[in-house]
């Protein structure tokens, strides 16, 4: 029996651009990261690392330091375990290498130039251009740095190796802040890009 059109359609829809675990992890990570950043801002304000630079309390989460700490140390579990599952499945399925590699500085440079003159197209959503690859890989590594520097701050006595890796307790706070700033920067660019290619939002929701 020849493959029916229905069967072909089914097998196509069964192979979404983003598998369901990628979509789930993406949105759970987005939720966790937003909660972590907003509550983190409130914690930062209790004793600013950079004197004179304060985040407006109205855009923070938690209301006071104690509330913000509760949010931060609750959302961290979601961020941590969701991140572990995401990285684990990415490695196990080979998606990490399939989607993000090969990646060369030359390709990044080429796509950056094309993007700046408005000629970088993103018609095939199943394929990442070099700028996407470097951006997504950077934010994955940035999230790992955020978790490690956060652990060094939270448990500076229990994790001496991590503490020294971060350059001591006080320096871990600077690393944590800078990694947060990079994450927020990614978030802004990411949202602008999604606004430019709205179809990519649908893909991350429905898979196609």
């Amino acid at each position: 029996m020849a493959a029916s059109p229905l069967k072909t359609a089914l097998s196509q829809s069964a192979k979404p651009i983003h598998p369901v675990w990628v979509r789930l992890c993406h949105w759970l990570n987005a939720l966790a990261a937003i909660l972590m950043v907003l509550s983190g801002w409130r914690i930062y304000d209790a004793s600013p690392v950079f004197k004179g630079f304060v985040i407006p309390p109205a855009i923070t989460l938690g209301g006071w330091l104690g509330g913000a700490l509760q949010w931060h140390f609750a959302a961290m579990w979601l961020l941590f375990f969701n991140g572990l599952i995401y990285l684990g499945l990415n490695l196990a399925t080979g998606r990490l290498f399939r989607k993000f590699f090969p990646l060369s500085p030359r390709a990044v440079w080429r796509d950056l130039r094309l993007a700046l003159i408005g000629k970088l197209h993103h018609d095939d959503l199943s394929h990442y251009n070099a700028l996407q690859k470097i951006a997504y890989l950077t934010v994955i590594i940035d999230l790992v740095v955020l978790v490690l520097s956060g652990l060094a701050i939270w448990k500076s006595v229990q994790f001496p190796l991590l503490r020294e890796l971060m350059g001591g307790y006080d320096n871990a706070r600077i690393v944590h802040f800078c990694a947060m700033a990079l994450l927020v920067g990614f978030f802004v660019v990411h949202v602008v890009m999604v606004a430019l290619v709205p179809r990519s939002l649908l893909t991350m929701i429905r898979g196609r």
């Binding site: 109205a58 855009i59 209301g63 006071w64 104690g66 509330g67």
Partner: peptide, 10 residues
Amino acid sequence: RLFLKGAVTL
């Protein structure tokens, strides 16, 4: 009271 005072933003 403290919590509610604080939770106003969210």
